[in-house]
Simulated scan of single mutants.
Amino acid sequence: MRYCILLLALLFSSARAETTAACEPAQSCATEQTLHLSWALGYGQRSNPLYGGEELPLVILPDIYYYAEHWFFDNGKLGSSWALNEQWQLSLVAQFNQEKGHFQKWFGGNAFQFSSTNFSSPSISIDRVGPLQASVREIRKRPTAFDAGLQLDGLVGQWLVQAVLWQDVSNTYQGQHASVGVSLPWQQDSNQWQLSGRLYWKSAKLIDTYYGIDNNEPFYLPRYNGKPSWQPQLSLSWQRPVSERVSLLAFVRYLHLDDAMTDSPLVRTDNVTTWFLGISYRMY
């Protein structure tokens, strides 16, 4: 792990951000030396799959990104990129692990709900029935972890493709997680749409740290050791400009949780749904 951190630090210091091929207007790509700051006001919520977990209300959402010559910040993700060719770009990225957001309502990572892979239809949640369940109020506090990784972005025809591999560099859960996703943006009159699909993989160590029940928990709770998890997600987003700075927008996401998650006595549903409808004002 020590050598991995040194390697990541070396890459951060030597990588040079380069622009990729010009983007079509509907792709909403960021350009170098660009600051974007907007706030969306409306209403929505993100469901919580945990027993005793609180749903996250979405009322004011920031959308913040800045792309400089050598680095970028994009809604909680810090990185440095370089172009491999006209279609593909490799980035070294870092961010706080988002898993804690289900356990702590006001976790900082919950503020950033905008990303390049948002949206899908909500479904009816089905509670797991049985005596072997545990509330988040009964367990010890889950840790905050910091991840670093490699992100590959590409353009294949009209499809945007992304793959990310993350490693815990804070030595918190000592595991990895990864995802691969595709996204199709299109424009219909003044309406801008984006349909996305993504598959997440989370290591047994990550699942065990956040959803496992070990001997450090109260004795009356059922024990559970985490297993590797595969979690598919669908998302859809819509935006309609009203003026140069004001837009109407909406998004919805559906994340399916597999048995590695639902077998945990902490988890009561097999999905997480997120939706939001509001109006956005762009300051920069």
Rank of each mutant, 00 (worst) to 15 (best):
V164F: 03
L277N: 06
W201M: 05
Y173M: 00
S91E: 12
I279A: 13
I213N: 00
D189V: 05
R16P: 08
S38G: 03
G226S: 00
Q104E: 15
S116Q: 09
D259W: 08
I124Q: 11
Y51A: 09
N110P: 11
Y3Q: 06
T144F: 11
G278E: 03
L255N: 10
N110W: 13
L255Q: 08
L50A: 06
F96I: 14
W238M: 06
K141R: 15
L7P: 09
R198A: 11
T274H: 08
H36N: 03
P218Y: 02
E24N: 12
W193M: 14
A148E: 07
A15G: 14
L236H: 07
R16H: 14
F276Q: 02
R282D: 02
G42T: 02
A68C: 07
P265G: 02
Y200M: 11
Q33M: 09
L61P: 08
P265W: 01
Q174Y: 03
G212N: 00
L234Y: 06
L234A: 12
T172R: 01
Q45R: 09
A163Q: 14
R245W: 07
I213T: 00
Q104M: 13
L160R: 05
Y3P: 02
Y224W: 00
L78M: 11
N110S: 11
H36Y: 03
Q104N: 12
V182C: 15
K141C: 15
A21N: 12
M283I: 04
T31I: 04
P232N: 05
L78Q: 06
F114Q: 09
Y43M: 15
T273P: 11
Q45K: 06
V246C: 05
P143F: 04
L37W: 04
A134T: 02
Y65P: 01
D127G: 15
A22V: 11
Q188I: 09
Q188L: 13
A111F: 13
Y51C: 09
Q33G: 05
Y224F: 01
L35T: 02
H70G: 05
Q33T: 03
